[in-house]
Structure formats: C-alpha cells, structure tokens
Computed example of a mutant assay.
Amino acid sequence: MQQRMDISQAAPQGYQAVIGLEKYVRANVDPTLLHLIKLRASVVNGCAFCVDMHSTEALKDGEQGRRLFAVSAWRESPFFSEVERAALELTDEVTALGEHGVTDQVWAAAQDAFSDKELADIILAISTINVWNRVAVSTHLQPPAL
C-alpha cells in the first residue's frame, strides 16, 4: 500500500491545529492512561501506523508489553485498574459513536473514576487520536519498515 497524501503538506494549518490538540492532551492526561487510550482507539479503528507508533512509544516510556498486547482484549484481561477500565470503555464507545453513542452506564463509570476536568481531557484525548487514526487510515500512512 502506498501513502496517498501527506496531509501536513497539503493542509499545514489544519495539521497544526490537530498538533495543538495533541500537545494539550499530552500536557493534561496521565501518560500511562494516554498510551492506553491511543492504542485502544487505534486498534478499534484498524490503524496500523498508530498501533505501531503508540505501542512503541508506550514501551519506551516503560509500559509492560503484556499490558499493551492485552489492550485488544482488555475486558477479559486482569492487567488494568478500574480507572483504566473506565477510560478504555469510554474510548471504545466514543470511537464507535455510530453504534449507540456513549451509554449512561459507561458515562457514570467514567464520572466515578475522574473529575470533570479529567473526564473532559480524556474525551479530548479520545477525540484527538480518532482524528489521527482517520488521517492515517484514509491516506494509507504506513509504519516504518522493520
């Protein structure tokens, strides 16, 4: 598969706007939680570039490989805290909005796990990785060769 377009070159101002969101979430969301959110949304969206990038970054930052592998089956995995589970469930529902939106049950669990500010920042993090996933998948952005 060949990359179709480099959006950073075709629409540099738009690309920089997304970079601004990325900088915000990196500064405001716990790094471990952010890695899990980015990886989970990327798995759900089938974004090979982002799965590669975010798993590689998480490993560099000290995350355990077993937890990263388990993100694809997090519901059945014992490796995640209740707070991480709330974030992963919210990630699944925000990423797949067309199926049923965010259910009241998932929202309540997220409200129990996070302050309003933390929850707002997590929603922005989920939204941002979904933008990146859509850019990468639609343009056929490929991970670097092994």
Rank of each mutant, 00 (worst) to 15 (best):
Q2R: 15
S138M: 11
A10I: 09
A120H: 14
E99C: 00
G20S: 03
S81G: 11
V131W: 12
K23P: 03
T95H: 07
V106S: 05
D52Q: 05
L36G: 00
S42R: 02
L33V: 00
L21F: 10
V94Y: 13
I122A: 04
V94F: 11
I126F: 09
E57W: 05
G101S: 02
L97Q: 11
I19L: 04
D61Q: 15
I37T: 12
L21W: 14
V44D: 00
Y24F: 10
A109W: 01
V135D: 02
S42T: 10
S127N: 06
P78K: 04
M5G: 14
K117R: 11
A10G: 08
G46C: 09
E118V: 13
A70I: 03
A11F: 13
S138K: 12
G14W: 08
A10S: 13
I123P: 08
A86C: 01
V83P: 00
L97A: 03
N130S: 14
L88W: 11
A87M: 09
R26L: 02
G46S: 05
K38C: 09
Y24C: 01
L90R: 01
S115I: 09
W107K: 09
D92S: 03
N133W: 00
W74Q: 05
V135A: 06
L124N: 08
N130P: 11
N133V: 10
V43A: 11
Q2G: 14
Q2C: 10
S72N: 06
E22Y: 08
A110E: 04
I123D: 06
F49D: 01
L34G: 04
A58W: 10
A86T: 05
A86L: 04
T91I: 03
V94N: 15
L90H: 08
V29W: 05
E99N: 01
N130D: 07
A113M: 06
F80Y: 07
I122G: 10
S81T: 01
A17I: 12
Q13H: 09
F49S: 06
D6F: 15
P31N: 04
T128E: 15
V25N: 01
W107E: 08
I129R: 15
L119D: 03
G62P: 00
E99Q: 02
